[in-house]
Design a protein around this nucleic acid. Structure first.
Lengths: 113, 113
DNA sequence: ATTTTGATTAACCATGTAGTTAAATATAAC
DNA sequence: GTTATATTTAACTACATGGTTAATCAAAAT
């Protein structure tokens, strides 16, 4: 029922709705990281970290390069920018509405004098 | 542990991670809506709609004006723009990285000749 | 060849989510 | 004052989430 883009937006926003995962994104934005590097700042089992990474992967927010026994995780921009676009659409809309409201107020003010 | 902004970001992104709620936001972006107006397009009980509205409210994405027995729901921009800012931060970051990469490529190219 | 290391998987738990139906609440209309 | 309307709340279901520990797997180091 739900189309692919919508489905991915669901997954992207869901992935972003968690501190740990947002922190991981921040870390990977600095530079690509291995799983244990990603795990290091968190007081949490590696199994839990592994699951968080999977959520990011499922949302298509990161890619994983398997390099021997270490996995390197790297941000992908596409899904993130899709989410940004969604939000941006409404941002524009609202500023437009705000401008409109403002111009109405100005008109009203001019009439007063 | 988690600060208030982080907590609200969690709730905002969680609220956005659902088609029905994103559709509702689109509807309210056009104009403010009553609960039954919001419910109309969806094949879903009013109780379910009521819960979705609560999620949006908890995320501080909307406000509700109780007007007799009807409730009017209206978007609030603050939380949304907070989320937009979060995403925007990384957008900027990536374009910067992209520019950097590009300039490295240019440098390499110049050396070739 | 054995052990250590980096990471995933499985099984489990408590809690949350997204929906349902039925009952309750409060206002409006007759 | 009874009925109809707009909406919420409660109790329930099925499934997802975010964590745990223990077991597994594959590559690296000894």
């Amino acid at each position: 029922m739900v189309n692919q883009n919508e489905e991915n937006l669901n997954e992207v926003f869901h992935a972003l709705a968690n501190d740990t995962r947002r922190d991981m994104i921040r870390m990977m934005a600095e530079e690509e990281r291995t799983v244990s590097e990603l795990a290091e700042p968190f007081d949490m089992s590696l199994a839990a970290i592994s699951k968080h990474i999977k959520v990011l992967e499922r949302a298509n927010l990161i890619e994983r390069i398997v390099n021997g026994r270490t996995h390197i995780c790297r941000l992908k921009t596409e899904s993130l920018s899709q989410a940004t676009e969604w939000l941006h659409f409404y941002e524009k809309f609202w500023s437009k509405r705000f401008d409109l409201l403002e111009s109405e107020l100005m008109k009203a003010k001019r009439k007063e004098h």
